[in-house]
């Protein structure tokens, strides 16, 4: 019998709520393993947890700015499907070297993208055309485990390992962003898909690839309240400019 995960979908949510709900799922003592799909209203630039605010280009060109709990570079959340996975720290998906957990999740994402006609693969040692490390953007800096197509990075992901749970963030580029030029998107391959249409395809690929059953549900009332409480700090200038 496969394990059952909760599937939460929140389209067009406020940036503070998006980050607050992910922190709620990371800190929760009782939440089931949860896969979450979401999008942002307005378009939002998220800084990596340790990034210096001044090192990121474009903070004045996005609809909102937040700082994520996960590390890595900044992401402009527009024309993309954002996901988070939150599971207990000892979950089988995240046992062993961190690299292996990325390979498992990215393998499922690759299969979902293939259904759209995209042909992604792990970057490995390839040199990319999307490298622009001076911008501070996640999609302009790559590692061997990143998913790429057309020699450009198209999926960004990062993990936070808490005391009892793990939070895995990811962004899959469906269309262009003015702050992330030259990155791979589904649209750049001549295909078109909205995040709402891609979500069930990715859900199916993740369920199959990770051997889990997904059960649609929403955050509990207590989780919503906690998300609102946690969320306030993500847009607080003191937190945004802590570095």
């Amino acid at each position: 019998m496969t394990e059952t995960w909760r599937l939460i979908t929140t389209w067009g949510a406020e940036p503070a709520f998006n980050m607050g709900l992910d922190e709620t799922l990371l800190r929760s003592a009782h939440a089931p393993p949860t896969l979450r799909f979401y999008s942002w209203q307005p378009d939002t630039l998220s800084l990596g947890y340790f990034q210096r605010f001044a090192d990121v280009r474009g903070t004045d060109r996005a609809g909102a700015v937040v700082r994520r709990l996960t590390g890595g570079g900044a992401i402009h959340h527009v024309n993309e499907l954002t996901f988070s996975i939150s599971v207990p720290r000892n979950h089988r998906l995240y046992r062993g070297p961190i690299a292996e957990s990325y390979i498992r999740v990215h393998g499922a994402i690759a299969r979902a993208l293939q259904e759209l006609g995209v042909d992604p693969k792990l970057r490995g040692d390839d040199a990319l055309l999307s490298e622009r490390p001076e911008t501070g953007m996640c999609f302009h800096k790559s590692s061997p485990l990143d998913l790429v197509w057309d020699r450009r990075k198209g999926v960004g992901s990062a993990q936070r390992r808490g005391k009892t749970r793990i939070l895995h963030h990811g962004s899959i580029k469906l269309g262009p962003s003015p702050l992330e030029e030259e990155v791979a998107t589904v649209a750049s391959t001549g295909n078109t898909v909205a995040c709402e249409a891609f979500a069930p395809i990715l859900a199916g690929a993740l369920a199959q690839g990770l051997d889990v059953t997904l059960e649609a549900g929403g955050p509990t009332e207590a989780e919503r309240e906690q998300a609102t409480d946690f969320g306030a700090r993500y847009i607080d200038p003191a937190f945004l400019k802590r570095r």
Partner: peptide, 18 residues
Amino acid sequence: QGETFGEIESVKAVSDLN
């Protein structure tokens, strides 16, 4: 006891220090 006192980041993960 059990509180997070810091964080450490590697290329692919941020981890709490407890």
